[in-house]
C-alpha cells in the first residue's frame, strides 16, 4: 500500500540481520512503521463499506471520487497539522484560517471584483502571518500551543467576521473563478477534484521533507524532546515557527479550494478541521505527545476518515444515526490500529 518513503526518522532504519525468515521479519518491520496502523484502518473501513454499501454506489466511480475528494480536502490540512503534532505542538486555529481565507478571496473577488489572484495572494499572506504569530507566541510565551492557538482561532474568526461585516455587510459572498486560478484550485475530471492531486503532491513533499532532509530529523527531535534537541543544536524555535506557518498555509489552500469550487465564500468554512485534522493524524499513527508519526500515515488517516464520514450515507440506513456510526467506526479503526502496533512491538 505505502509506496512513498522508505525510512521513517525514528528507528525505521534499524536493519534486521539477513537470515532465515527474512520475509517474516520484513512483515514485522512493516508493521512497526508508524503508518502501518493508518493503512490497516483504511483497508478495514474500505472493506466494511465495500461489503455493506458496495451495491448502493460506494464502489462506483462517483462513489470513489466522493471519498477520495473527502480524504483529499481533509488530508491537505491534516498532513501539515500532523507534521506540527510530530513537532510537539497543536494548532486549533487552522479551521478559522480556512474560513478567513475563504472570506478574503470572496471579498476581493466577489465583492470588489478584483483579479482572483489578489484575493488568493492576500489569503495566503494572511495565513502565513497567522502561522508566524502562532509560532512566535508559542515560543516567546512558552504557553501551551493548545491555549495560544485557541485564542488566535477566536481572534481570527471574530476579527474576520468584523472586517467582513464592516466592508460588505455579510459573512457569505459569491466568487466565480476563471482562468488559471480555476484550473489550479477548482478544476475537476469527472468528479475527481484537483485537490486530490494537491494532496498527493503535498503529502509526497512532506514525506520527503520528514524522512530525507535534516529538517525532518529536526522535527522528530523537537517533538521527541525539545530540551535535548536544543542541546544537540537543533534550532527548535525556527522548526516550530516553520511548522505553524505550514499548517496555516495548508488551511488557506483548503479555503481557497473550496471557495472557488463552490463559488461561494463563507466565514464558517473549515470549522470541522479543529477536530478532524487532529483525528486524521492520530488515526494515521501520529502521537498526541509528539515525536512520532509520518505524513504517509496521516494520508491514510485522512482516507479512513474520508471513507467513514461519507460511507455512512451509502449504507442506505437511517441518516439520523450517521454521527453515531462515524464515531463508532473511528473508534474501532483506532483500536485496531493501536492493537496492531502493540502486537508488532510485543513481538519485536
Amino acid at each position: 500500500m505505502s509506496s512513498a518513503g522508505t525510512s521513517n526518522g525514528r528507528g525505521g532504519g534499524a536493519a534486521a540481520p539477513p537470515a532465515a525468515g527474512a520475509v517474516r521479519r520484513m512483515v514485522m518491520q512493516a508493521l512497526l512503521r508508524p503508518e502501518a496502523g493508518g493503512v490497516a484502518s483504511a483497508v478495514l473501513v474500505f472493506a466494511f463499506f465495500a461489503v455493506f454499501a458496495g451495491e448502493n454506489g460506494f464502489l462506483s466511480p462517483l462513489g470513489t471520487a466522493n471519498w477520495l475528494d473527502s480524504a483529499a480536502d481533509l488530508g491537505i490540512v491534516a498532513v501539515a497539522v500532523g507534521m506540527l503534532m510530530i513537532g510537539g505542538e497543536f494548532d486549533l486555529s487552522v479551521g478559522s484560517v480556512v474560513g478567513a481565507a475563504s472570506m478574503i478571496v470572496a471579498i476581493c473577488m466577489g465583492y470588489f471584483a478584483l483579479d482572483p489572484w489578489v484575493g488568493i495572494v492576500l489569503a495566503f499572506a494572511f495565513a502565513g502571518l497567522v502561522g508566524l504569530v502562532n509560532g512566535l507566541l508559542v515560543i516567546r510565551t512558552r504557553l501551551p500551543s493548545f491555549i495560544v492557538t485557541l485564542a488566535t482561532m477566536l481572534m481570527v474568526m471574530g476579527g474576520m467576521l468584523g472586517v467582513a461585516i464592516a466592508l460588505t455587510g455579510s459573512s457569505s459572498l459569491s466568487a466565480t473563478p476563471s482562468g488559471l486560478a480555476k484550473l489550479l484550485f477548482a478544476a475537476k475530471f469527472r468528479e475527481f477534484h484537483v485537490s486530490i492531486l494537491q494532496w498527493i503532491v503535498l503529502s509526497t513533499l512532506a514525506t520527503y521533507a520528514m524522512h530525507r532532509t535534516v529538517f525532518g530529523n529536526w522535527v522528530y527531535a523537537t517533538g521527541g524532546n525539545a530540551q535535548t534537541a536544543r542541546l544537540a543544536g537543533v534550532p527548535v524555535a525556527r522548526v516550530k515557527v516553520i511548522l505553524f506557518i505550514c499548517a496555516s498555509l495548508a488551511a488557506a489552500l483548503s479555503g481557497v479550494n473550496e471557495t472557488l469550487s463552490f463559488q461561494n465564500g463563507n466565514i464558517t468554512l473549515g470549522a470541522q478541521y479543529v477536530f478532524t485534522g487532529i483525528a486524521a493524524a492520530v488515526i494515521g499513527g501520529v502521537l498526541l505527545t509528539g515525536g512520532y508519526g509520518s505524513p504517509v500515515g496521516t494520508m491514510f488517516g485522512s482516507v479512513t476518515y474520508g471513507i467513514v464520514s461519507l460511507g455512512v450515507f451509502y449504507l442506505g440506513w437511517n441518516s439520523d444515526l450517521a454521527n453515531f456510526f462515524i464515531g463508532l467506526l473511528l473508534l474501532l479503526a483506532v483500536l485496531a490500529n493501536h492493537r496492531l502496533r502493540e502486537l508488532a512491538m510485543g513481538r519485536r
Binding site: 454499501a53 448502493n56 454506489g57 460506494f58 462506483s60 462517483l62 462513489g63 466522493n66 475528494d69 473527502s70 480536502d73 474560513g99 477534484h193 473550496e258 469550487s261 463552490f262 461561494n264 463563507n266 464558517t268 468554512l269 473549515g270 470549522a271 470541522q272 464520514s309 461519507l310 460511507g311 450515507f313 451509502y314 449504507l315 442506505g316 441518516s319
Partner: peptide, 17 residues
Amino acid sequence: TDQAKVSRDIGAYLQSH
C-alpha cells in the same frame, strides 16, 4: 459548514436512495 462535503453527503444519499 463544509460545502464540498455537504454536496458529497447529499450525492451519496441520492445514490443509495
